[in-house]
């Protein structure tokens, strides 16, 4: 780790006025600083800022500095959020990691994390070894010829399914952006990962009220049962009336460069019966546009199967 200057502002205004890299739980930033991937000269410890609180009075509002474990333990949080959080990292990391930091976490691509290797995301224009290299964990959706790195957050997948927004504050103002628009697919400029502008800070996550998301889940498929990133995951919510699907939310993770909403699957589910066959039909187009790499072709069928599994798990009672 390189030398850096650490300050700890105690107001949002002070934090926004000072140049530097924000440090919350530190579970990504410190990790990447140890690897020399990030070498900030100024680090701003924002843990003293008043960005806390979980409110469920009208939809869900989560302060950016809430810890993953605290949000997961909150009774008023939609099940798909709780499950996505509990499927993330380890208890120790969840106790430290903040919600805002979770949304800002960097990819786990091993080339991104190894400064001896080229990486367009870390060092624009240097190249992408993953495209021809070790890419089993990489994305099949939202990729470009410059980057195929997978977005790592489980929480973001659930939030995108729920139309969540992030509130971004800056000196003298703020704006609210849909999380689905916040993230950027790599295109020709993979170093631009999101719509957070210099001088902005995520202050809050807003999830619109969606009562039927009480019936929701998050299924995460991975190489071991805990403490591992997703090969594929699915956040699914269903509004079922009289054994018919009225509405659906489906987003997937582990397979795309950003949290990936599946509107065509949602559309196919609307009006469909609650049957395995209907789910398989709806999921058939889940991987539309996928561009498999040399070692991750299995993610295409796995994506369909993960969606079907999540839908089945959500409707065990109806189908029984």
């Amino acid at each position: 780790m390189r030398r850096f200057e650490l300050t700890a502002p105690d107001t949002v205004d002070a934090a926004l006025a000072a140049p530097g890299t924000f440090l919350a739980g530190g579970t990504t930033l410190v990790d990447l600083m140890k690897l020399d991937v990030l070498t900030p000269e100024h680090v701003l410890d924002i843990n003293a800022l008043p960005l806390h609180g979980i409110s469920t009075s009208d939809g869900l509002r989560i302060g950016a500095l809430e810890r993953m474990s605290d949000v997961a333990a909150h009774a008023g949080v939609y099940p798909m959020i709780t499950r996505a959080l509990l499927a993330s990292a380890s208890q120790q990391l969840r106790n430290m990691a903040s919600i805002g930091g979770n949304l800002m976490q960097r990819t786990r691509c091993s080339y991104f994390r190894d400064v001896a290797m080229p990486c367009n995301r870390r060092d624009p224009g240097s190249g992408c070894p993953a495209i021809e290299g070790s890419n089993r964990m990489h994305a099949v959706l939202g990729t470009s010829d410059s980057c195929v790195a997978t977005h790592a957050s489980d929480l973001a997948v659930a939030l995108v399914a729920l139309d969540a927004q992030v509130r971004l504050v800056r000196t003298g103002g703020e704006r609210t952006v849909a999380l689905a628009d916040f993230y950027r697919t790599p295109g020709d400029s993979p170093e631009v990962e999101h719509d957070l502008r210099p001088g902005e800070l995520i202050s809050e996550v807003l999830v619109p009220r969606l009562d039927w998301a009480a019936r929701s889940t998050y299924v995460k498929v991975r190489d071991r049962q805990s403490y591992e990133f997703a090969l594929c995951s699915a956040a699914v919510a269903l509004d079922v009336v009289d054994s018919r699907i009225v509405d659906a939310r489906v987003a997937v993770g582990g397979v795309a460069t950003v949290p990936w909403r599946l509107p065509t699957v949602e559309a196919a589910l609307r009006g469909a019966p609650v049957t395995q066959e209907a789910f398989e039909d709806a999921a058939a187009g889940a991987a539309e546009g996928a561009r498999p790499l040399s070692h991750n072709g299995f993610k295409v069928p796995l994506l369909r199967r993960t969606v079907v599994r999540a839908l089945l798990e959500l409707t065990q009672e109806e189908r029984a």
């Binding site: 091993s110 290299g133 070790s134 190489d223 071991r224 049962q225 805990s226 403490y227």
Partner: peptide, 14 residues
Amino acid sequence: ANGDLAGYLIPVNA
């Protein structure tokens, strides 16, 4: 490609 304990998986308790 996976020369660390993030990429070289060993079982966890679960």
